[in-house]
Amino acid sequence: MSDLKLAIRAKRYPRHDGSPVAVFDDFALSVPAGQFLAIAGPSGCGKTTLLNIAAGLDLEFDGDRQLGRLAGGAAPAIGYMFQEPRLLPWRTVAHNVELAMGARDDAGAAAQAWLARVGLPDAGPLYPRQLSLGMARRAALARAFCVAPDLLLMDEPFASLDEATADDLRQLLREIAERTGGTILFVTHNVDEAVRLADRIVMLAGQPAAVARDVAVDLRPADRQDPEMVRRFRDRLREPAASAAVEPEPAARAVGGGR
């Protein structure tokens, strides 16, 4: 697993009229190796941009991205669950998972094993358009985990699913994440979801986006399943957040949190 350090001095996007809008300005985020970090914030605040920068997809920013190299200097593996499942529609589900793994003799068997693990034991030979959204999300989850990601990026992976399916997938994610133990950056606008899943929650607000809150989630696994406990934790997050949005706590900028 790898730790991730982002130091974004400036990230701008052109508006419709061509004038730049600052998404991030002097923004820093550090994720220790093995941490499950949820990033919450209103839509449009730059969460997806942050993931793309973390993934190394977006290189057009002023600043620095450091992803810890592995022992032996190998480049860390990255898994990315995009906002939509983004399976290649012209390849079967099994082939989609297999392709992510690269040249491995047992890629076929490994892909099948991962599909079974996410609850799709029979979907391998199907094409993506034959899957429901929930099934496609499961397949995308299998693809993200099959690379044994040192850094796993997730962009609202359970949005627009019915609550029961989303809950199943959250449970599954939590189980697999605990066993495989990579670093996870999980973006959501659903604070309850963040509380249930993450070790630490960073809340973004404003424009350019700044860290409004940075808290460790100290709930026991059983409490995470208890809606009442989740609600109480969420409310605790919200109260000071209102003022924090105006005046960020100095501590929130600092690196750290976590376990």
Partner: peptide
Amino acid sequence: PAYAELARVYRFGRWKTLRHVVVPQLA
């Protein structure tokens, strides 16, 4: 471009990207 991003994140490399991502779209 979404599929090109996918190919980059999962390190398809040139040949695999061409074969599994580009050519099927051009087919």
